[in-house]
Design a protein around this nucleic acid. Structure first.
Length: 262
DNA sequence: TGTGATGTTGAATG
DNA sequence: GCATTCAACATCAC
């Protein structure tokens, strides 16, 4: 589920549903994803507390408490927030939930348990500690160019490196490469400044639109890549074949005869 | 039954 | 220090 647009959407709904409501009750069913607090401490911290604001950088989303601490909700591969009113509507892989004073329940669902839920005194300091790069939606062109022109890496690896740019995951990385007509295993040191500018523009365009559409893929433009991001597909153009390979450790799809290798 | 999955990290290697 | 690869984490779906 979660790359920048997905995380942003989760945060947006969290703001609508959870902000400034008093927390009445917290139940923990599986504390595996609570990485730096015991369940009892987590429950004690949140109960009678309130989320007053949020902050997001890349895929790292924080709820900021009235008590001034922050809770990091890193959704991992399959984390999601679900809202419901009846306890029997609990999602199957709910690891904990939060009941607000209006009886709305926020369920934290995560089948694979790759989430990281952390209680932090300062999310700013935490972000510095992990050296998270600038958010993909707010990074300046100058910073992007400086970054891409000073590294050696596969393009895909560069785009996925959260210390350089925060927020791009495997699907959007392929989308950016496709729309920029550049092969994902191109070496960034071989790209011209023009190529880098095209990548920057496409990164912004794609993520902005995805955020605007609340990461709802079904309403993305027809000519985006995700629809035929599967091996062998050629429905859009007979001259194209979608190929699959591993780049920078991740499964990668690209279109032969369309995306140039540099 | 085996394989891979929208993520991250740390170890090992060059 | 930098870049790359790979295993590990836990579970489900094809």
């Amino acid at each position: 589920m979660p790359e920048l647009p997905e995380v942003n959407t989760v945060m947006k709904i969290f703001r609508e549903q959870a902000l400034e409501k008093r927390i009445k009750q917290v139940d923990v069913f599986d504390d595996y994803i609570l990485k730096n607090r015991a369940s009892e401490e987590f429950i004690e911290l949140l109960t009678d507390n309130q989320f007053m604001d949020t902050y997001r950088q890349g895929k790292y989303f924080f709820g900021i408490l009235k008590s001034n601490q922050s809770v990091l909700f890193h959704l991992g591969m399959t984390g999601d927030m679900v809202y419901y009113a009846e306890p029997e509507d609990r999602p199957k892989h709910e690891r904990f939930n939060i009941t607000f004073n209006d009886n709305l329940i926020l369920g934290y669902n995560d089948p694979r348990k790759f989430s990281n839920i952390l209680v932090l005194d300062s999310h700013k300091k935490y972000l510095e500690d992990i050296q998270l790069g600038p958010d993909a939606l707010s990074i300046s062109k100058a910073k992007f160019l400086d970054s891409i022109q000073s590294k050696k890496a596969f393009l895909k690896g560069f785009l996925l490196n959260q210390k350089l740019i925060a927020g791009i995951g495997n699907l959007y990385a392929d989308e950016i490469c496709f729309q920029s007509k550049i092969h994902p295993s191109s070496r960034i040191e071989n790209l011209s400044k023009k190529h880098c500018e095209v990548l920057y523009q496409n990164m912004k365009k794609i993520l902005k639109l995805a955020v605007r559409k609340n990461a709802y893929y079904q309403v993305y433009p027809e000519d985006w890549f995700w629809k035929w991001r599967k091996e062998g597909a050629s429905e859009r153009n007979e001259a194209w074949t979608v190929k699959k390979m591993t780049v920078a450790g991740r499964t990668t799809f690209w279109v032969e005869g369309y995306q140039e290798m540099y």
